[in-house]
């Protein structure tokens, strides 16, 4: 707040400020003796595209899993659009759309049936479900996957169906874990457009990814997680600090091996 701002104006500003779309405080999770998440703080402002990056095993998916209620944290607070996600789960769930990574789907349903099932679970009316499912199939290029049992769909098509079900109930917060993995470039471009429109209209999108290019292209803010803690957070430009984001990322998380030593038996 600028110096000299009257106190009442500051109060009005604070009151009018919308709550963060996702706020995480001192989140911790231990599996056995392995501390996967160690006191993470994260704030995602409404109407932004927020990237979460980190090396394999950094704790990204665990953090996302806890944020959406699929993993129970050992300690910490999670707030979704002003609702305590740990105590008022129903309200948080109603506002959130989720695309987890590596979890199964009801494999015997077709893509279209999965969307109808999801619509039913969300309590959408028959007319709304039919309209939205039809549009999502068309916009995301799901005509083939919509008619094929998910067990027989490619990874990319499964991702697209998963994304469609996350969007179906028009959530205000989208939490996507590796949404572009195995998705072809044409579909990826249309998904990016859909997500950009969603964010431009006031929605919030949190995505976990390994692609620094994607973060640079799409995200307003980024959080870098390493060994269960936040090592950098801010706007993409702030975190990059004038370097290409990928170089900065490697610098932040520290490369464990350079790839130039050892393996003499492999290189002849």
């Amino acid at each position: 707040m600028p110096r000299g701002t009257p106190a009442c104006l500051a109060l009005i500003t604070l009151t009018a400020m919308p709550p963060p779309a996702l706020e995480i405080r001192q989140l911790r999770k231990t599996f056995g003796t392995f501390r996967a998440v160690d006191g993470i703080d994260l704030t995602v402002r409404q109407g932004t595209f927020h990237g979460i990056v980190g090396p394999n095993g950094a704790g990204k998916s665990t953090t996302i899993g806890m944020a959406v209620g699929l993993i129970v944290p050992d300690a910490g607070e999670i707030t979704v659009l002003g609702h305590d996600a740990l105590r008022d789960r129903a309200a948080a769930r109603a506002l959130t759309g989720v695309l987890p990574d590596g979890l199964d789907l009801p494999e015997r349903l077709t893509g279209a049936e999965l969307l109808r099932y999801s619509a039913g679970l969300r309590g959408l009316s028959r007319a709304a479900a039919a309209e939205r499912v039809t549009e999502l199939i068309e916009v995301l290029g799901l005509a083939k996957a919509a008619a094929t049992p998910l067990a027989d769909c490619s990874t990319g098509n499964r991702k697209k169906v998963g994304l469609a079900q996350a969007l179906l109930h028009a959530p205000r917060l989208l939490v996507l874990d590796e949404p572009f993995e195995a998705v072809d470039p044409v579909s990826a471009a249309s998904i990016r457009r859909v997500l950009r429109r969603f964010v431009d209209s006031g929605g919030t999108c949190v995505l976990s990814t390994h692609s620094m290019m994607l973060v640079e292209q799409m995200c307003d803010e980024v959080t870098v997680i390493h060994q269960g803690t936040v090592v950098a957070a801010g706007t993409v430009a702030e975190v990059a600090g004038g370097l290409p984001l990928e170089d900065r990322f490697v610098e932040l998380v520290g490369a464990e091996t350079t790839g130039t030593d050892g393996l003499s038996w492999l290189v002849r």
Partner: peptide, 19 residues
């Protein structure tokens, strides 16, 4: 493997109301 549209052209076929 399965037709996209249900009995009245609705994708995903016939589903009962509610969760």
């Amino acid at each position: 493997a399965v037709t996209t549209a249900g009995p009245r052209g609705i994708p995903g076929g016939r589903w009962g109301p509610g969760p």
